[in-house]
Write a protein that binds this DNA or RNA. Structure first.
Lengths: 340, 340
DNA sequence: ACTTGTCCTGAAATCGATTACAAGGAATCA
DNA sequence: TGATTCCTTGTAATCGATTTCAGGACAAGT
């Protein structure tokens, strides 16, 4: 069912049908009606590829995330999509599962689709890819990674601050054996969160013991990390998780091992996803305003649309500490429920 | 950066470049190398729209879900995407948030994109839309809604069985005041789950009281439903949730109101999402094999690809009861923690 | 030397839209 | 009545690929 077919049925040219479909108002009313009738009778649906090719504009925004299953990413997506729809744009989302091959594939696919803008909300980003994207001239936004370029904006969260705040809070409660649980790509030199943890905790001197461990993102990873951590013999008085999603699994494992939270061990998360209020106990965490980020992403991606000026920016967001009931004063002795 | 530009740089015709890019092996090796060099030097990315238009095939699968935030849907998506990638296809996903306007928009968008196949995993589906999709001739799969047509397959879960099994289990434990919590679109005449609940519970005669209530999908809705339910004065000995995701919020509210699960009230979910193991207490639920469904969807969508035969099918899946610790014998009296 | 066949490559049609430009007809004006 | 404008519509170029078909080059067969 092509434009031509519809045009034939309506007894007009393809140009006229196109005008009707695009609300170009020069068309005579009687003609418009005839065309619309033909369109619906033919069950016609414009071919978006042809439209994009001819029109030059793709009307879709791309988003690449590490793990859409993690509500943190999903919330950003939701807001971006909602903003986009309000402007007549669609969002195509791709999931990398922290796999850099899939990231490359995703970026190429987006360039191939000639998206209006591309949001890259992932943990890893190699510089060749950034170059590739830069040369493509597609407006892009990175979250937490990469540098600002002519067509690339950057949004980042002041993780350092959030982590430092959390560690201090725990320190003041008397905690002196701290553990940090990250996910694979969040450990290593690139992770601001882990770095901030190490630096802050180190500043308290040798009386404060600490350790870091990593597993995959998600509840399973959190549980696994908890198992390995406890099996290692280290008995933390408090555990900081790189995000709430992992903390969910961690809580489960602690409970299964007979440890009470926060009486025996305190736990904190990061992100303040909705589920952090629903787990038991509700998580002390650090809020990252995901809605706002989604909106900022949209703005950064569509700002240039009007004029040709490259309005790339660097935005920093300060997160906020959220106190709930998964944290409390440090236990006096070592874990009561665990055999020595 | 177009094919023509690359062709010019390599000193060949566009046809040859196209051949190289599509692995048509007739090209002389030296030429191929020259072309590949030009391609990478020019930072060339084929325009997918042009490719689709010329080639006729879109190489992308569409999926429409009600609520991608609910892990139930996400798990299906994940498997579908993984299968698709293995076959060189991409998946474009759209979220309706249970809004029928967005559903219509989504379907139209997919038809416009000329997707290879379309998976519609939603709760609502109006028959005009089904007609529209049928006429488009795009292979489609519906989950739980709609009828089998020439190009439309159907996958459904035997909810009736799962619910009946759960109700019986609770009945045998002495529960005689049951509540069913649904989400808006799952209540009403179309909901197999609610119907099954009503029918099964009614069969026990007037000694068994029951009630149904609905709120939005998700933890918030679950909590809200619990609040309203308890505020109504009805004191259920057991609550069945239409899905695990809502049960998460329900558990929170019960706990906040001082009710113990399962001592004071039993709770069941449905779907067996991963999180149902991580909440407190772990949920008794009914397993729906989401991976398998994702795979079946993929198969149904790509089967026809080879031959032109319309292989639409109707697949029914039997769910499996999963016993965990959110259920137990009915409490002897009314809720102890609640004032009379 | 003349076919014949094999390899490789290019010219041009095609996919389904959009849009600049041209043109026909009606209406207005002198 | 003839000229000028205003509306409305059609013709055809264009977007960036794929693909059919034809043809040139070169080696082999006779």
């Amino acid at each position: 069912m092509s434009l031509e077919e519809v045009a034939r049925r309506a007894g007009v040219s393809t140009a006229t049908v196109s005008r009707v479909l695009n609300n170009v108002k020069v068309v005579k009313n009687s003609t418009r009606l005839r065309v619309m009738k033909a369109v619906s009778e033919a069950n016609y649906h414009p071919n978006l590829h042809a439209r994009t090719l001819a029109g030059g504009k793709s009307l879709t925004i791309g988003m690449i995330t590490s793990n859409l299953e993690n509500p943190f990413f999903f919330d950003i997506f939701r807001r971006l999509e909602s903003d986009a729809h309000a402007s007549g744009l669609d969002v195509v989302v791709v999931n990398t599962d922290y796999d850099s091959e899939r990231l490359v594939r995703g970026v190429r696919m987006m360039i191939g689709r000639r998206v209006t803008g591309l949001a890259v909300i992932v943990s890893e980003m190699d510089s060749d890819l950034i170059d590739e994207l830069t040369e493509s001239d597609i407006p892009a936004v990175f979250y937490d990674v990469g540098a600002v370029r002519k067509n690339i904006s950057n949004i980042r969260v002041n993780y350092r601050q959030g982590i430092a705040r959390t560690v201090e809070y725990l320190h003041n409660l008397g905690h002196d054996r701290l553990a940090f649980v990250g996910h694979h790509t969040s450990l290593g030199p690139t992770s601001e969160r882990e770095q901030a943890f190490v630096e802050t905790v180190s500043s308290y001197g040798p009386s404060t013991e600490w350790r870091t461990i990593a597993d995959q993102d998600g509840p399973d990873g959190g549980r696994n990390a908890a198992r390995r951590l406890l099996a290692s013999g280290f008995e933390p008085t408090a555990i900081l998780c790189v995000n709430d999603f992992m903390a969910l699994g961690l809580l489960r494992e602690l409970r299964d091992q007979g440890l009470r939270v926060p009486e025996d061990v305190s736990v904190t998360g990061f992100d303040n996803i909705k589920l952090s209020q629903y787990c038991e106990p509700p998580l002390t965490t650090v809020d990252i305003p995901r809605e706002r980020i989604g909106h900022l992403v949209f703005e950064a991606l569509t700002r240039d649309a009007g004029k040709g000026k490259p309005a790339s920016r660097d935005i920093v967001i300060d997160p906020e500490f959220v106190l709930r009931s998964s944290t409390g004063p440090a236990a006096k002795s070592s874990h009561p429920a665990r055999p020595v």
